[in-house]
Nucleic acid binder design. Structure first.
Lengths: 207, 207
DNA sequence: ATCCTAGTGTGTACGGTGTCCACATTGCCA
DNA sequence: TGGCAATGTGGACACCGTACACACTAGGAT
């Protein structure tokens, strides 16, 4: 059953490939995910991967989704539930925004895999509307509405506005000019930016 | 002097390579810039490019800077100078934001080259602080301060907040889930998002 | 218990890429 | 007019993604 000590069939190769992809992309980002290297890391022939993923991109997408789940895991760990409903709601929204940015700053390679996988990736399934971090944001905004801090009519626009701001800041901070600033300053600016968009979104009147 | 009809020396090969890079990346984005194809388009041997650019990335960066200049060219065309100083200032800021987004929507390939060149690009020189579109934003915010619509202390933070929002929206709209929405809806949301961040930034109190 | 089939991994090969090296050609300046 | 620095060429190397045909193995039907 085995010529070396490893059986011919790997057991759960699909999972192993995704995990190898995770460790490979953590430092260098999506470019570091090369079929030959992933399979090499798992100790398997390059073509074996094609039994589980049609493409390099399909594997990369799978890794990206896994990373999005890691992301929400870290984000939920930030929530603190004290105070009345209004402060809880606003704290929750803040936590989502800062958590998103913190993850990007702490794991720039992974963040790039999750949200900038490949320049030519087809956008419709790149980061579907059900992206877990996006759901967290949606929930946080619903809490704001329930607490009376945000008009129900403004909710839809607020989703895009909040996501855009936080996402853009993360992009500028990881692969843009903000990366040149010292990390403490970056975090300080992150807090200001999050406050600004929360303010702007709460003031928004329906159009 | 010529074996075919083209002289051995190209004249301005560096410029020709950049222009070929522009046309190659316009549709498909940064990935479409391949050394062999660029040189092929110019009618020159692949290695000739290495007399003018150390790397593929160096050429890609040059193309990206060129695109940033194209971007401001289109953005300045949007400015309309009517009304009093305050309305001019706020209209200018709006125009910068919407112009940024419009360019990204109209030229997603180029936008990606300018701001998401390669996942592994070293961020310090990726989009230096003097990026032309960023300078436009800085100027617009200075006008806001001069018009008394923005506190001088808040200006620094406002720069990052505005850029992050607009940049993030462009990213979501070109390679993210917003790309799935109909273009008219995207533009509508763009207007709301820009309004929201302007509101938020103007309300900001110093920290 | 045996066979067969579907699932999974392997070997080989092809075309493409970025980039290094040695060499060819040319324009320019002393 | 000679020579030198700049510029373009040809060939080669290592690597990549992936298609094709084949090998092995597990597990259900007989």
């Amino acid at each position: 059953m085995a010529v070396g000590d490893r059986p011919y069939h790997h057991g759960d190769l699909r999972e192993a490939l995704i995990e190898a992809g995770l460790t490979l992309t953590r430092q260098e980002g999506p470019e570091a995910l090369r079929m030959r290297e992933v399979t090499r890391a798992v100790g398997v022939s390059p073509n074996a991967a094609y039994r589980h993923f049609a493409d390099r991109r399909e594997l990369l997408d799978a890794v990206g989704q896994r990373i999005q789940h890691l992301m929400v895991d870290r984000m939920v760990a930030l929530r603190s539930g004290t105070g009345d409903r209004a402060t809880q709601a606003i704290d929750g929204l803040r936590a989502v925004g800062l958590g998103y940015i913190d993850f990007a700053l702490g794991e720039p390679g992974w963040f790039a895999v999750a949200f900038f996988p490949a320049p030519g990736s087809r956008p419709e399934d790149a980061a579907p509307r059900e992206a877990p971090p996006y759901r967290m944001l949606v929930d946080a905004l619903d809490e704001m509405v329930a607490a009376g801090l945000l008009g129900a009519a403004a909710r839809d626009g607020a989703r895009w506005a909040c996501w855009a701001t936080v996402h853009g800041f993360a992009g500028l901070a990881t692969r843009g000019p903000l990366a040149a600033l010292p990390p403490a300053e970056v975090r300080r600016q992150a807090r200001r930016v999050v406050e600004a968009i929360i303010d702007g979104v709460c003031r928004e009147r329906p159009t």
